[in-house]
């Protein structure tokens, strides 16, 4: 593997995280539908999972579970994994809250277009 390709692969997961973040943000900025906007927010948030797990990864190491491997086996960082896992569940609940807002917005104003919603409020 050439030097440049190695350097690129070394950065790839971080670039994927950045791509997810930016592409989700682009979706939020240009969205014309609240539900679509919420999905874009999930995309933005999923970039944090990629980033967290990439930061803690170690080539050739095992998962941080020592039930059937000796204690001092090289393992990946458990802290970022714990962060990612609580994040997934909490995100699901927060998404539900946002969708509930969308439901009520549709009931009150009959539209889910954020631009029209702004105009309604004046």
């Amino acid at each position: 593997m050439s030097q440049a390709a190695g350097e690129f692969l070394r950065m790839l997961p971080f670039l994927v995280a950045a791509w997810l973040f930016v592409v989700g943000l682009y979706g939020i900025v240009t969205s014309r539908h609240l539900v679509h906007q919420i999905i874009c927010l999930i995309v933005v948030q999923s970039s944090t999972y990629v980033l967290l797990l990439a930061v803690g990864y170690r080539t050739g190491a095992v998962a941080p579970y020592f039930y059937d491997v000796p204690v001092h086996t090289p393992a990946v960082d458990p802290v970022v994994q714990a962060l990612a896992l609580t994040d997934v569940v909490v995100e699901a609940a927060v998404t539900a809250l946002l969708l509930a807002f969308a439901v009520q917005a549709h009931k009150r104003f009959g539209t889910l277009d954020p631009h029209e919603l702004v105009q309604i409020k004046g």
Partner: peptide
């Protein structure tokens, strides 16, 4: 950054 696959520790 230390690069993918090179977790530096020490906390984890």
């Amino acid at each position: 950054l230390p690069g993918f696959g090179h977790y530096p520790g020490p906390y984890g």
